[in-house]
Amino acid sequence: MSSTEQGTSSAAPAEPTTAPESAAAPEVPESFYYVHGKDKVVHKVSAGALQHSALIHGMISNLGYTEEQAKANPFPFENIDGDILQMVVDWCNQHKGKPTPPEDTNLPKQKEKLFDLVLAVNYLEIKELLTYCCKQVAMMVKGKSPEEIREIWMIPTDAEDEAAEKEAKKRAGKEAAGETAAAAGDAK
């Protein structure tokens, strides 16, 4: 967890603590951006760490925010739970500017957390983290029988799939009929 780079409210994000640079390296000031999830807690993240997310990277490039504008306008991700966004931010910080290792053992073990993390990571387009997460999801059914796999991943039976498909068709038919009736009503 990188508490040093993370604020607790959108009004007053904490100032970053900068790591000492090598004497020979030219001083390049790092720019920071701000994101928040469903819980509105704002996380301050460096541009380097956010490079992992193709979505955020694209937003930054398109908006061309200054530091001040970025602080005033945190990127809102209302579809992501606060603790999940925190995990994502931590991962991006930990892997900032580093080659990603072949395995990542720090992913959540609980099924529901992992499920939410996968959705968030897919939305934010963080390719390497998505691969790790999917590997972990795949590992959940390693060596299991078909019935155990069905239980773990809550896969419907063929009969349930067929019933759901029928229901969806019926609903689509009703909606189409409703739209036609409404259009006819409008025409009158």
């Binding site: 795949a138 059914v141 390693k142 299991k144 078909p146 419907p156 063929d158």
Partner: peptide, 19 residues
């Protein structure tokens, strides 16, 4: 996820449902 599964697990998954 499928791409990260081994062949035996894929075979077992294929018996779970038509989908």
């Amino acid at each position: 996820i499928i791409d990260n599964m081994n062949h035996l697990d894929l075979l077992l998954l294929s018996f779970v449902s038509k989908n």
